[in-house]
Structure formats: C-alpha cells, structure tokens
Nucleic acid binder design. Structure first.
Length: 469
RNA sequence: CGGGAAGUAGCGCAGCUUGGUUAGCGUGCCUGGUUUGGGACCAGGAGGUCGCGGGUUCGAAUCCCGCCUUCCCGACCA
C-alpha cells in the first residue's frame, strides 16, 4: 500500500513544501515577534553538526574564537560610510534602557566589523602582532521585511571571522584560504552541496568591502542560495578605526582586514539542496542521526535484538538512534524519512529468525537484507557510499540546471529553470538592470575555466545569473 | 515597506454573506482494548478568552475601526 503523502510535493508548491519540511521534521517554529525563529532540538542538532565541522576548519586555518558584545554604539556604524549606508535600513536600535532614554542609541549588531575593528586597533601595535585572526560564534539582527525560517530571519546565528594583515596580498590570500579550506571544503565534503565559487559584482558586494567572494548553491527548484561569503575589506575599516601597526622600519602602516561568515541559512540550504517529496535528506557525514534502528514489531526478542544492533553500531562510531516505540510501523518509518535520516535498519522477527536485518537507504529507497554479524563492518562504508551518491546527484543537478547562453534575453529565459552563464561584458551595466527587473540577479563572476577571479576588472569574465532566495 | 490572501482546539479546515441556545468536522492528543513487515482499528475522553484591542447592538466568530502575526508577489539582505 503506497504511503499517502504527508507533505506538499515539491512540484506542486515548492515554498509550501519547504515550510512543511521545516514543521514536520521538527526543525523550527516562528517566534512570537515577526521574523524571529525558534530552532527546535532536531534543527539545532543539525546546526551543531554544521558548527562543529566549520569550527574545526576555522581553527585549522589558524583563527581563534573570541566573543564581542551584542550592543554596539550607534556612532561606530557611522565611521565607515558605505557600511552604515548598507546596514541602516536593517538595524534594530535600542533607545531606552534602565527606564531612561539613552544619550546615544545602541545598535543591536547586524555584524561586528565595527566593534572588532575598535579592538583590533587597541591590540595591534607591531607587525609582530599580525596577522590577527579572530572568529566569533554569535547571533546577529538584521530587520527583515520578508522573513522565512532559516533563509531570512531577523535574528540568526552565525560565525563571523575577522582578520587583520600587514599587506593586501596576505589579506587576500587568507580570505581565499577561508573560502576554499573552510567553506568550500565543508560544503563539498560534509554537506555534499557543491556550489559555484566566484566573486560578487560591485552591486552585490558587502557594504564596505573591496571584494566579496561567495559560494552560490543551486537549490532543487533551480534558485540560488548564497551559502557563505568571504570579504576583502581593504583598508576601509582600518582607516575608519585607526588599525595601524608599526613596521620593521618603524613606520606606522594601515592594516588590511577581512571578514567572512556562514549562518543558520545553511540549514535552509541543506533542506533545499537535498530534500525530496518524502522530506529532508541529510548527508551521512552531516547527519546528527546517521542510522535509525527501528523495530518492526513490539516484541521483547525484537526489542532486545534492536538494542544490541544499536549498541554495536554506536561502538563502531556510528551516530545511532534506537526507535522501539509502540505504534504503527509505517508511521514511524514515515517520521524518520521526513527527518532525513540517511539509513534505516529494520529489525523484525522474520528476518531475525534467519539472523538478518533489513537496511533501507533514505536517498534511493533501496532495501537490502544483511546478516547481523556483518552490520558493523558494512554500515560505515554504506554511509560513505550514500554520501558519495548524494554529492554526485547534487553535482549533476547543479550542472543540469546551469545553461550557457550568450545574451541577456536568453539568460532571462534560462533562469526559469535555474542558472544561466554568459559573458560578464554582456551584462555589466544595463544588462544587470534588465535582469534585476525580472528578479534575476548576478550571483557571481568567474573566469572561463570556472576559477575565481582576483577582481571584477579582469577581462573576459563570465557571470552566473539566477533567481535567488 | 507597497500589492494580494488569511488568522476559529497541536495541525488542516467549515461556520461569517443574511448577528440569535451548549461553535462544529478531519487529524493529532489522553484512557482501555485489539493491533504492528510502509502513515492501523474500535470504544470512551480531554482540549477553544473564535489573533489582540476598541466600537455598533438587547445580543458579535459573524458588522465597523485600529493593531499584531502568517503566506504569496515585489523592493532589501547571510
């Protein structure tokens, strides 16, 4: 008997499907204030896995974690002209505290370049103090006009890295290092979500940056999602906050700074990069629950066997959840499918009599019988195989939804289905306006071989354009 | 923030046009029993300031005004 669908199908209504998954996989709820988000335990478990993987890579890249305050003097924001202009529409400002009107309003951080810049100036004296490599895990607030859970919430969680360097080359190299060794590596090897790496056109750059790099993901519906960004800030913030160092020659020199971030938006990206009509689908390396062991019948022998199976898999290093709950088998199966657990081990009396269990892959639905004693040997490589298949599938999806075109008109047509790639010269200037009028934006610029340009002034660049979240 | 739609039990909805007894239905939840290899069934039960505030009225879920929230489409963004 075919299970009746419990979610809106992607093809029928993709935004509705997304909301259904968020609700039924118990990832998040709307908070009481517009645009705020309650992240539920299962959603937070996924975020903690993302955090752990990204944090380890940030530390491997040499940055150290610190924490800066939520409240920022409003005057700090104003010190960098483009920065304040870019962020002022989204700011939440505290005007009253302690029962009194404040002399100077306090801004709830939308990002921390300014406060961190202030302290960089204090901590950096000599070239020996450079590079200064900082990161913080924090919440930030950017008032959103049109919120969506995980994708655009007025408050969200992220990591923001901030570094200061002696030279432009060093700053640029470090921003690139983060982009490749932290973000791209995480996205490809853990989240199995290959993106397009490129630089933002001037119109899409971070407020105050001289160059912004992006990882542009291709979602199941063909739309773009920026999964992470790294910015070269040049000397803009160093000038605004007097971040000077004394060189070997004893001269005062301005630093070059960078900043880079990835947020809870990644959870939204995960949903839309791998999810299907049965719900979420989490790649094994990322999954907080890699295997669910569930009993087919509520009998003591079955329950005991399931418990042994779960233990042995845990001992083998697999993240396992045991489901020996009562209630119908089909219901429990569907619930775990919605949550996207990559592999299911079904323990039932018929199989047990032959010393077997049934393995079911969430991605393909393929079932296989396996001898109990082979489980701990077979499951880890099977999880890796699923990981590999998800990556291959995502890569194929990305390429299938990217179309090479030569004109803005063809690009508009092609973006009904996904991304379009065309020469940047065709788009720069008026073309960009024509695209924007149809809700299509330039997601990133690349060289013809797909590599990352050093600046948007390079010749013969290509651009990837798409509708975006 | 502009245009559209909507808010009634955890979730999905009916009732509102034409105001009038104890506000219904499906699903979920609780209890008991039968079940359990792809969203089980029977019986009983709990659960509502009808989004919030004000107004009209003898009487408001229903009519009027304001606000809040959600969804869709734009402009803004991680």
């Amino acid at each position: 008997m075919a299970a009746q669908s419990v979610l809106t199908s992607q093809s029928k209504d993709f935004p509705r499907w997304y909301q259904d998954v968020v609700a039924k996989a118990e990832l998040a709820d709307n908070g009481p204030v517009r645009g705020t988000m309650v992240i539920r335990p299962y959603g937070y478990a996924i975020w903690e896995r993302i955090q752990g993987e990204i944090d380890a890579r940030i530390k491997a890249a040499g940055a150290k974690n610190a924490y800066f305050p939520l409240f920022i003097p409003e005057s700090y924001l104003s010190k960098e002209a483009e920065h304040v202009e870019g962020f002022s529409p989204e700011l939440a400002v505290v005007t009253h505290a302690g029962g009194e009107k404040l002399a100077e309003p306090i801004v709830v951080r939308p990002t921390s370049e300014t406060v961190i810049g202030e302290f960089m100036a204090k901590w950096i004296q000599s070239y020996r103090d450079l590079p200064l490599l900082l990161n913080q895990w924090a919440n930030v607030v950017r008032w959103e006009l049109r919120p969506r859970l995980f994708l655009r919430s007025s408050e969200f969680l992220w990591q923001e890295g901030h570094t200061a360097h002696a030279t432009n080359e060093d700053a640029s190299a470090y921003a690139n290092k983060i982009h490749n060794e932290v973000y791209d590596d995480f996205l490809v090897n853990v989240m199995a979500s290959p993106t397009y790496l490129g630089i933002k056109p001037p119109s899409e750059r971070f407020a105050g940056a001289i160059n912004s790099m992006t990882c542009e993901g291709v979602m199941r519906d063909g739309k773009a999602l920026q999964m992470a960004t790294s910015h070269e800030l040049g000397q803009n913030f160093a000038k605004a906050f007097d971040i000077y160092y004394q060189s070997e020659e004893g001269k005062a020199e301005l630093c070059y700074t960078t900043s880079w971030g990835a947020s809870t938006r990644l959870v939204g990206g995960l949903i839309m990069a791998h999810g299907d009509d049965a719900g979420l689908l989490v790649p094994p390396r990322l999954a907080p629950v890699q295997v669910v062991v569930l009993t087919v019948r509520d009998e003591s022998e079955v329950n005991e066997a399931a418990d042994r199976v779960a233990r042995s898999l845990r001992d083998a290093g697999v993240r396992v959840e045991l489901d020996v709950g009562r209630g119908s088998f089909g219901r429990r199966v569907t619930d775990w499918e919605i949550k996207g657990v990559p592999l299911r081990v079904e323990v039932g009396p018929r199989d047990l009599a032959q010393g077997l269990v049934t393995l079911v892959r969430r991605d393909s639905g393929v079932k296989a019988l396996l001898a109990l004693e082979k489980l701990t040997r077979e499951v880890p490589p099977l999880l890796e195989a699923i990981q590999g298949d998800l990556l291959a599938r995502a890569l194929a999806h990305r390429d299938d939804h990217t179309h090479d075109v030569s004109t803005v008109g063809d690009a508009l047509d092609a973006t009904k289905d996904g991304f379009a790639r065309l020469p940047w010269d065709e788009v720069a200037g008026e073309g960009e306006g024509a695209l924007n009028a149809q809700s299509v934006s330039v997601r990133c610029l690349q060289r013809s071989d797909g590599s990352m340009p050093s600046s948007d002034t390079e010749r013969e660049l290509f651009c990837l354009v798409a509708k975006s979240y």
